[in-house]
């Protein structure tokens, strides 16, 4: 298996040059290539048949994690291996590291990027669920120089669909606000260790001064519709102080009310069971992190 004929390979040094390269082709005939851990498979199976490949590897402005008082910004070309090792992604951002450390295998983590993962938005994937759980902002720019910021809730439109236009490049995933006393976590279960999620759970909580949950987000991965925000789950955790019984009860309700599906990996009931068993640990970890405990 190898890709269909590619007419042009370019390696721009800047975002402006990458956008200029894409603009020379009809929409969809030129594609951006990040780590290639999804795009190469898709090109070899001929699901993607680009005439032009615009390789983003040399664009340094797309790389790196910046964390300061005004929030966190992760460049689109930042790789899993860097997110996994980042000491800056603590507390409310810790779920990003949880996911990155468990994507695929070492070789995939050495290449795959946060930008490629969210732009691909595979149904059974980890990073889209975490970015949705942590309410990231996706910063996009296009050839006319205009840049826009799209909330994760509006960006992920279902499996392999996002709000990104073909001629737009994702610059970064950003969090403009730093929320005190917040914690997050992500975990998944797959058919083999670190495989694609049959079910994954991302939970983020923020606590008030008395340690009670004042805001929460519950997002599931591995459902037929891809990363899914369970808004009812958010309210079930409100007021909770991290008590194990309360968490268990909330997770059972979430599992009961979730429209899970059956496929060759797991049936619908098993997926519900996974939501509870993974979710209780993830939620407890998110509370611990919000309290500043390890």
């Amino acid at each position: 298996m190898y890709p269909a004929l590619i007419e042009e390979y370019v390696r721009p040094q800047s975002v402006a040059d990458a956008l200029a390269a894409i603009a020379r082709y009809e929409a969809g005939d030129a594609i951006f290539l990040a780590g290639g851990q999804s795009a190469m498979q898709a090109m070899k199976s001929r699901m993607l048949r680009p005439q032009c490949v615009v390789d983003l590897q040399a664009i340094s402005e797309l790389k790196g994690i910046v964390s300061d008082a005004s929030g966190v910004r992760i460049g689109a070309m930042t790789r899993y291996v860097e997110i996994a090792a980042s000491a800056e992604l603590q507390g409310g951002f810790a779920a990003l590291g949880d996911a990155a450390r468990r994507v695929g295998d070492r070789q995939v983590r050495n290449r795959g990027t946060i930008g490629g993962s969210v732009c691909w938005n595979y149904a059974a994937s980890c990073t889209p669920a975490v970015v949705l759980g942590l309410q990231g902002q996706l910063r996009l720019t296009s050839g006319d120089g205009a840049s826009r910021s799209v909330a994760a809730d509006d960006f992920f439109l279902g499996p392999l669909e996002t709000a990104r236009n073909d001629d737009e490049i994702l610059l970064s995933v950003e969090w403009p606000l730093f929320v005190e006393r917040s914690g997050s976590a992500y975990a998944k279960w797959g058919l083999v260790t670190d495989a694609l999620p049959v079910i994954g759970v991302c939970v983020r909580v923020s606590l008030d001064a008395d340690g009670r949950c004042e805001s929460a987000r519950v997002v599931l991965s591995g459902l037929a519709n891809g990363a899914t925000h369970v808004a009812a789950g958010d309210s079930l955790l409100l007021g909770c102080d991290g008590d194990a019984d309360a968490i268990e009860a909330a997770l059972k309700r979430i599992a009961q009310d979730t429209d899970t599906h059956s496929d060759m990996s797991a049936d619908a009931d098993y997926r519900r069971q996974l939501i509870v068993s993974i979710g209780r640990d993830v939620t407890a970890t998110a509370f611990r992190r919000a309290r500043g405990e390890a």
Partner: peptide, 13 residues
């Protein structure tokens, strides 16, 4: 110096 899968890379890369 980093381990990568060479079937997921173009020679041009």
């Amino acid at each position: 110096g980093e381990a990568v899968k060479s079937c997921l890379l173009l020679a041009a890369q």
